[in-house]
């Protein structure tokens, strides 16, 4: 999977956790908590969904690495490649 694919997967799971967000309106640098208003439970649901979908287990200390679509695409690609 490329970074573009990972970005798409991230956005898909983000909008499944928060169905009232329109993926077309999410900017690459929008912060999922500060800009998109996810709470800590939503973030955990997102991390769990990414784990189920991609098999990538994101530890709590790495949560800042998925705080925007741009960061998440790069992080998921590097973690996916490392597996």
């Amino acid at each position: 999977m490329t970074e573009t694919d990972h970005r798409a997967v991230f956005l898909e799971e983000l909008c499944r956790v928060a169905p009232d967000i329109d993926p077309a309106t999410v900017g690459d640098d929008d912060h999922i908590q500060e800009d998109l208003e996810l709470d800590s439970m939503d973030v955990l649901n997102l991390v769990a969904a990414l784990h189920a979908r991609l098999g990538i287990d994101i530890p709590e200390r790495d949560y800042p690495e998925i705080s925007t679509a741009r960061l998440a695409a790069a992080y998921l690609s590097s973690q996916g490649a490392a597996r």
Binding site: S40, M41, L44, H51, A52, D57, I58
Partner: peptide
């Protein structure tokens, strides 16, 4: 919670809330 969650997959982690 940090110690408990460290070894667990996301769907078994517990939040302070």
């Amino acid at each position: 919670l940090e110690e408990r969650n460290a070894g667990l997959p996301p769907d078994r982690r517990i939040l302070l809330g």
